[in-house]
Every structure is written in structure tokens, then in C-alpha cells.
Design a binder for these strands. Structure first.
Lengths: 245, 245
DNA sequence: CCAAAAGTGTTTCAGCTACACCCATGA
DNA sequence: TCATGGGTGTAGCTGAAACACTTTTGG
């Protein structure tokens, strides 16, 4: 950071890529766009685009998401979080592109009106074989984003970002189950969540039917807390051993 | 990511910044360099520099660290981990600079031979008032890096990255205490570490004096595990409440 | 009545905290 | 001998897992 010369180096293009998740119909879904041009024409890719000269990466991420998928930040309920930056020199065959990746969570999936830029946009089930390999290194980015979200559910109150303003504890539990791919004990989950001050707040008197059948469930709002002490650990992958790479 | 034109946008400079931590003499220290030029001449800053057109950010980070501080990756014992990317348009007064920040941990601090680029390099105590505000937004980067490292100690085996190849459990415990700024019960810490398979491996027969006094301590090596199940939680900051922003 | 989901109670067990206590060494 | 840090033992608490049970709805 000592010797500066604006033109001493070949210019870098800086882009953003977004892995936007939601939970719909009991499944984890990702927002993908179909590429209309080479390279990777016809392949699915993460939404994203160039960072403009006067904007921060996060600003660019919100703008591109709206432009490309017609999905704006409705009611400010879009949770956006920087994932990491991918900078391998050959990750784009045409030029040097450094991409700042974001993981995003949205509660209810509004309709996707394929925006100005992209040929097609759709919420596809995460991990599905329906969309082959993604363009560029987007498979890796998507996988990293999924890992990050799964981990953050353990020690933050992030799960409410998948839920509408008013939700039941069963819906909140489904977020954990769908992201982790496991089943949780409803009784223990309930106690754990309610025992964490500020995770959720009950809406007095309100209740709603969920599965069509069953007792109506009380409604809750997201509380002000952001972190979980102690954390809500997912069942150990191995039989309680230190994980090796 | 649809319409490409290499010169359609003002070029971005892409740099790396490193927050390199070590534990020396019972204190957490950071590697800083003194700036020789404007802006912020004479101020302390994180080591870092430009990413070259043909290298990934992590490669650039290792190279700059060696060039600027003369501190190479001795024995491959440098733990380097991407933190996040800082891209606010005004973070450098001269031009648009997007910086990929890294957190790094090293075991024993070899001498720092202020390298080619920097005026001076030194290991300064973290949080000390000795170095005023850092250049650019480096105070924030350093703070973010400290948070990240502190958090990762809880649920990964990262602490061994601060230790030499052979270390005692007291030294390992000191890493936690120094980074978290708390005291830990030696007995319980010992049991917890040994109960996690793959965290450390005892070196049979070896022992060493540590504080000059006291019983010689057994020596251990880092094991192959990377994550901690269940985690080693630090004492809650508040009286066991969900943390609010 | 039955199925399904919400919600409560209870037993059991693992893990953590706290603290007492012994061991080996230098001063 | 005392101070210091390593290392072991143990009683008690907390919280999570597992599972039985009640409640309230739709079919």
C-alpha cells in the first residue's frame, strides 16, 4: 500500500455474486438465473454483476438482485451477509474478475419476474440434480454459502430471517430442519428457543393453523437478540468426534 | 455478469491487508508497519499490498507478508484465513481500492527485519494505546479480525496455530486466555482438550519446564482435528443473555 | 373416532464448574 | 521449606435428549 500508480497494473473487474436462500414448501431453495450468453450460455448461475465505481460491494449486491431478478428488498426483510471473496486468476475465462460473494436469506418467496438482465430466474431446490453444474465457480460459492448459513444457525438468531414477520415455532423449526437436513424434537426445540431471551417474542392472543390439521399455533415475532448463548448445536455428524478434513 | 467490456468501468485496485497475531510473553500482539508516505505517513498500518494480475488474493497475502516484513512462512506454520472484503468507495482518499483482508496466526514471533517496502515493522500489543489510530480503516479490520479469531477458538482447533510444534497444555490455555481476555480453570481446560479426539497428541516421554518453577509439563503436538464438538465456549459476556447489537 | 400438530411434564445422562488435593521443581 | 505450575479427583449444577402425555383442530 506504499507506491501507488493508478495504471501500473492491469485493471481488475470487481463483481458480486449472491447465493439467495429461502424455505418454500418444506424445501430449501436457491435463486438462480439462466445465462443467455457465452461463456456458460444456457447454464444456471448465481445472480450478480459488476460493482460500480462509486458503490460498496453490499450496495452493488442489493442493486443487482433487484435489477436481475426483479426481487427488491421488500420491507427491508432481506438479510445480506458477506461470504468471502473469490479471486483465482482463471475463474473467468475472459478477464481477471474478483468476485465478492454474499449469502442472502429471504422469508417468503415472492414471484420472480426475470429482470432486465437475465434470461430467466427461478427458485430451485438446493442440491437438486435438476440444474447441472453451475457456471464459473458458482457451485463452490453456493456450497460455501450453504455451509456458512448452516453454521450460523447454530450460534445466531439468523433463522428468523427465513420467516415472515409473524411465524409459528413449527415454521422456525422447519428452517433448521431444512437447512441442516435433519429432524429436530419439537418439544426440545421449543424449550430451547423460548429459553433464549430476545430470540422470539410471542404475539399475545394470536394463533394460526399451520398444516391444515392440528392445534392452532401461537404466533411469534423475531426478537432483538442476534447471538445464541449457549448455541443450538446440530446433531454431530460423526459419533461425537473431532472432525477431520 | 452478462455484458463484459474490459474498459467500460474505471479500474479498481485490489489489495490485501493482513492482521497477523501472535502470543508473546503472555500478551496478544499484532504485526504492524509504520507508513513512510502520505496519506497517513508516520501512522501504523496493517501489512499488505497490491494483488498482482496473475495471483490469487491469498498468494498475494503471503508474498506481501514476506516482502514487507521479512517474515516468511517458516516451516509452513503460518495460518492464513480470509476475513472479509472492504469495499467502501472512500476508504482510500486517492483512488478506488477494494481490499481483501486476512487474519493470520503465527506461533513464535521470529525477529522482524523491516523489509523492502515498509519503513518499520513491529509486534505491538493488541489493544494498546501505544499506537494511535491506524491508517485507513485498519482499526476496523483489526477489530473484525480479533472478533473472528476469538470466535473461532470456540468451535475449532485453531489455537494450536499460535503454538510452536511442541507445546504444553498451559501454553495452549494461555492462547485462549490472552485472546479472550479471560482466565480459565487449568484443570477443566485440560480435561476438555484431552477429551476432544484429534485436538492434541501427547509426545511420549517428553516434558519441559515452563514458568521456571513448577512441575515440568508434558509436551503435545497439534492433532488432525479441525473442529470442536462440542465447542469450548468462553464465559458469557453478559449474565447469560441473548446478545443485542 | 382418528390423525396430526401444538404444547407440557419427566426421567436420564453428559458435560461443565468449582474447588480440594497431590506432585515435581526452583529458589 | 515455600511458592508455583502441572495434574487428578469429585460433588453439584445445568441443559439437552428421549419419550410419554394432554390439548385442539380437521377429516
Amino acid at each position: 500500500m506504499q507506491g501507488y500508480d493508478k495504471h501500473a497494473y492491469e485493471p481488475f473487474a470487481v463483481t458480486v455474486d449472491l447465493a439467495v436462500f429461502t424455505v418454500r414448501a418444506g424445501a430449501l431453495r436457491v435463486l438462480l438465473v439462466e445465462r443467455g450468453q457465452e461463456p456458460y450460455a444456457g447454464r444456471w448461475a448465481l445472480p450478480g454483476g459488476f460493482v460500480q465505481p462509486d458503490e460498496a460491494a453490499e450496495t452493488a449486491a442489493r442493486r443487482e438482485l433487484a435489477e436481475e431478478t426483479g426481487f427488491g428488498d421488500v420491507d427491508g426483510r432481506l438479510h445480506l451477509e458477506q461470504l468471502r471473496t473469490y479471486s483465482e486468476p482463471d475463474r473467468d475465462p475472459r478477464m481477471r474478475v474478483v468476485s465478492v460473494a454474499f449469502a442472502a436469506l429471504v422469508p417468503d418467496p415472492p414471484e420472480v419476474s426475470g429482470g432486465s438482465d437475465a434470461a430467466r430466474a427461478a427458485w430451485l431446490p438446493y442440491g437438486s440434480t435438476a440444474y447441472g453444474p453451475l457456471a464459473f465457480d458458482h457451485d463452490r460459492i453456493l456450497s460455501d454459502a450453504h455451509d456458512r448459513v448452516g453454521g450460523k444457525l447454530e450460534y445466531t438468531c439468523l433463522a428468523t430471517a427465513f420467516c415472515p414477520p409473524e411465524f409459528t415455532l413449527g415454521e422456525l423449526r422447519q428452517v433448521y430442519e431444512v437447512v441442516w437436513g435433519t429432524e429436530l424434537d419439537p418439544a426440545n426445540f421449543r424449550r430451547k428457543v423460548l429459553a433464549t431471551p430476545g430470540f422470539v417474542e410471542q404475539i399475545p392472543g394470536a394463533s394460526r393453523l399451520t398444516g391444515g390439521r392440528g392445534k392452532p399455533a401461537a404466533l411469534y415475532r423475531a426478537g432483538g437478540a442476534v447471538s445464541l448463548h449457549p448455541p443450538l448445536l446440530r446433531p454431530a455428524p460423526e459419533p461425537s468426534e473431532g472432525t477431520r478434513p
